[in-house]
């Protein structure tokens, strides 16, 4: 929230001129019949995506040359808002002249870019990016029908955010590499969740299989588990500096029991480990003397030196022992 957000922006003001022009006068709206396709010796494919009850629906017609697999003519029909009609129109245009294999490579991002007036200004406001996704989905559907395969087989990866086309594996990798902790950080790094917002959490504009909140929670949990597993390995290997705090306390107690405590007890004293604080340079071990050690002159000189050098030798050179 800031000055620019005080008045809700007008949705339509954010449309590019191309969107406006194509909504007012779509170029490739219409139908292709079996007879027309047959007259050219071509195969007709008609694919639907969406439904009126969903709020948008598109029907794509492809006339394909069976010799070359080239889409020689294409038309569309659309039930939808201005951006849905303009997106369908430009998508239909992008298909023409391409082979079916080339056409399936067209994404909703290509469709949105083709609707821009200048390369750096988005053609539609973020929440309308969603409309271009359907244009992408219907191409996959048509290609699947032509090739007799499932439309999903064209998808190499699981797409979580369809508006920005961000895959599950990308999201997991970005969260790990950059140690991301919030949805806002994920959107900043990947653009996922920045458009129609359906993929952020359940209850949005449409139902999704994967949600960013779950992906973030699962990935963070995995990262924590891996960290613990690494620490457990460190403990097993005696790598003191990479142990968890509990492991470090156990390791220090073990060294003290083995090499230090018996000498203190002989003089009627004892000690206990209170806390461990690690920084980049030092691992500070706070201890408290008990019994006769308490107030003994040597406890801050010779005895302390002996304890510290034993721990340094057996565990880590970074250790400093601090009596409290």
């Amino acid at each position: 929230m800031a000055k620019d957000n005080l008045l809700g922006g007008s949705l339509w003001d954010a449309y590019s001129n191309k969107v406006t022009t194509l909504m007012n006068n779509p170029q490739h709206q219409g139908e292709i019949t079996e007879e027309e396709a047959a007259a050219h010796g071509n195969k007709l494919i008609v694919a639907d995506f969406g439904a009126e009850s969903c709020g948008d629906a598109v029907r794509l017609y492809w006339e394909i040359n069976p010799e070359t697999d080239v889409i020689e003519n294409a038309k569309f029909k659309s039930f939808g808002c201005g951006t849905a009609i303009a997106s369908s129109d430009v998508m239909t245009e992008l298909c023409m002249g391409k082979t079916v294999d080339e056409a399936v490579k067209i994404t909703n991002i290509d469709v949105e870019k083709a609707l821009r007036d200048d390369p750096d200004t988005p053609a539609v406001p973020p929440q309308k990016m969603h409309c271009s996704v359907m244009a992408y989905d219907v191409i996959k559907k048509a290609a699947g029908l032509y090739k007799g395969v499932d439309a999903e087989s064209f998808e190499e990866d699981i797409i979580v955010c369809e508006c920005a086309r961000v895959s599950l594996s990308t999201l997991q990798e970005v969260i790990r590499l950059n140690d991301l902790k919030t949805i806002e950080e994920i959107t900043d790094y990947t653009k996922a969740g920045g458009f129609c917002k359906s993929c952020i959490k359940p209850g949005g504009h449409e139902e999704r299989e994967y949600y960013l909140v779950d992906i973030l929670a699962d990935t963070r949990r995995q990262m924590d588990e891996e960290k613990l597993a690494a620490a457990a390995d460190a403990g097993a290997l005696g790598d003191f500096e990479h142990m968890t705090l509990v492991q470090q306390i156990k390791a220090i107690d073990a060294v003290i029991d083995e090499s230090v405590r018996q000498f203190l007890v002989m003089d009627g004293g004892n000690m206990e480990v209170i806390d461990i604080k690690s920084s980049d340079d030092n691992i500070d071990v706070y201890i408290r003397y008990l019994g006769a050690c308490n107030g003994c002159a040597s406890s801050t000189t010779g005895t302390l030196y002996a304890i510290e050098s034993t721990l340094k030798e057996k565990l880590s050179q970074k250790i400093r022992v601090l009596p409290i």
């Binding site: 779509p26 709206q29 139908e31 008609v46 639907d48 629906a57 017609y61 029909k77 659309s78």
Partner: peptide
């Protein structure tokens, strides 16, 4: 323009 009124089915 509407797909709801298209004549050629899928």
């Amino acid at each position: 323009i509407s797909s709801s009124y298209a004549k050629v089915g899928p």
